[in-house]
Amino acid sequence: MSGPAANVTVVTSTLVHAKGLTKHFGSFEAVRGIDVEVSKGEAFGFLGPNGAGKSSTMRMVACVSPRTGGELRVLGMDPDVDGPKIRARLGVVPQQDNLDTELTVRQNLQVYGRYFGLSRSAVRERAVELMEFAQLTDRADAEVEPLSGGMKRRLTIARSLVNDPDLLLLDEPTTGLDPQARHLLWDRLFRLKQSGVTLIITTHYMDEAEQLCDRLVVMDGGRIAAEGSPSELIRRYSTREVLELRFPPGEQSAAEVRDLAERVEVLPDRVLLYTADGEAALSAAHARGVRPVSSLVRRGTLEDVFLRLTGRTLVD
């Protein structure tokens, strides 16, 4: 870049800065005033159930949805003023693949690169690299439509990298994929992270958030309920171990085990006991004659964090 305009696009270490950010659709308040800072090089997550306001936030950051109120700076610029300039340096993976079904795999990458003003020869080269990255080289000239869900997702991610973005936005990247396809995708995203790309991810899968995010916010009802690294959040809002007791429908009761743990949650199908030592709590319950259908001791997860913060489970 040259000329007097160059100073406008100085890359600060804060790539996204939001303060009191809101989004209304008519009378519906999708985002109710959130504060977020995302720094260069980190992998940042929005964790929350469907309808928490994650996608609305992502669309505002992607500069395709004007904000209703609050402050928002992306790459140091205001989306309302410099939308196209910001978008030029973003990679976007939307919740639903919107690949161009009338084009082949290769053409999808090439045409998309052209939207960014890249030359024909540049997009040709770039498409080859990206198909390699997405492990789609052998499908280069295939139609998009018959590809599997995982392949389409990888192609969408490859497409979002065509402009070598400073910031990659991934909205529910693995929703609807089978476990194998998810792990393959996580591997690709992990490599991106290693190579220094800043990632913002929304997800309602706690395992995905734990795998990929350095730092995350828990969203619920358009607000941020908590913020921190996955391990911090677990430390703060859960316990090291969790004992799950399963009872036949209608017979579960927390009364007999309430004092065995720091905290007890009763779900429709099971009772959760939050404690530092799950095995000890289980023996104590057995000693009292509590006879669950099954029991499980596991470590605390973001799912427990969410349950603690909102009283609800993430995936219902």
Partner: peptide
């Protein structure tokens, strides 16, 4: 002024990718 600035600057940051072909 600012709109022409936007036009001059709306190409992607293409370090190492496309230096020979600056965005049109």
């Amino acid at each position: 002024e600012s709109s022409t600035q936007a036009s001059r600057n709306d190409g992607p940051d293409t370090d190492g990718l496309d230096t020979a072909n600056p965005p049109a």
